[in-house]
Write a protein that binds this DNA or RNA. Structure first.
Lengths: 155, 155
DNA sequence: ACTATTAGTTGATCTTTGCAACCAATTTAC
DNA sequence: GTAAATTGGTTGCAAAGATCAACTAATAGT
């Protein structure tokens, strides 16, 4: 099996397609957040116990990146950062009302874009597709999906 | 169907897993190219008629990015850039022997990484996975795969 | 011939990323 | 209980990646 060659190419291109569409939709509707920030808000909304360390490991990014992303979200008042009472090293991250509303707006856009990009793909194919993605992540050592932020839990 | 929410998240995370593994392998074996450059060399090797415009559209990136990537590859003498005789606007890109050898070295690494990441995934699932990726790209308006740089054509 | 288009290049600028150093709080090891 | 190690978070800096607009040179369209 020679899937080897271009797994990265295929994933990269597909992601880029998705991102480009999202970015242009965001621009059109004057949403000033990036896709990354949208993802972070989504994760925070899925599980309000997530701290910056968790975001870093879930997203496989350096913790410093997360800090800065959160800083942006703070400035626009989409989240609040509070020092945890039990462990003062830890900062809890809480979505504000404003953040929640913006998130829902972005989710709708993501829904539209996804619907558009996934047309012609059967339920079954999509299921397998998701499982393969999960499997790759697992094989790559991504922590088990603590909070099940899979595909299917959106209201 | 609520796959909407995190298509971007799933793709992004999976790509990141792949990239992280590749980067650490590249580092270990002292390969000083980026994944992007590896992809470009792959594409050039698949089809030597590709010009910079094609690379830009295939990779969905701005042409200026491609120019600069190629400049790097020129400096390290992995490719040569020649003005096309029939149309002097066009530059042909040719892999050097050095580039070809480096490419093969990187391909092997990519094979290993892919093999590792794809363990436990059946032939059939993988096939569907690839088709979904292609379908998404198609729905997103990526040009038809002129030179069939699909999964299965590696030596 | 004049205009529009195309391929490529450059410059300025911005974001993203990665790395290392660092602080403060907490654990651990003795 | 205290010293040392670890952990979560923050900052600075430099490299890489990406964007946008302006520009050249060659070609195509009329």
């Amino acid at each position: 099996m020679e899937s080897s060659k271009l797994l990265g190419y295929m994933l990269g291109l597909t992601l880029r397609v998705f991102k480009n569409q999202m970015v242009s939709e965001f621009k059109e509707r004057e949403i000033e957040l990036t896709i990354e920030q949208f993802v972070i808000l989504s994760l925070l909304n899925s599980n309000c116990d997530l701290i910056q360390r968790d975001l870093a490991s879930q997203l496989q990014k350096d913790k410093s990146i997360i800090v800065r992303q959160i800083n942006c979200l703070l400035e626009s008042q989409y989240v609040v950062r509070l020092t945890n009472k039990d462990d003062k090293r830890v900062k809890n991250l809480i979505l504000t009302k404003k953040g929640f509303e913006k998130l829902n707006q972005m989710k709708e856009i993501a829904s539209e874009v996804s619907r558009k990009l996934l047309t012609g793909i059967s339920e079954n194919e999509l299921e397998i597709f998701q499982n393969v993605l999960l499997k790759i992540q697992e094989n790559g050592g991504v922590e088990e999906d603590i909070f099940n932020c899979g595909f299917n839990q959106l209201k």
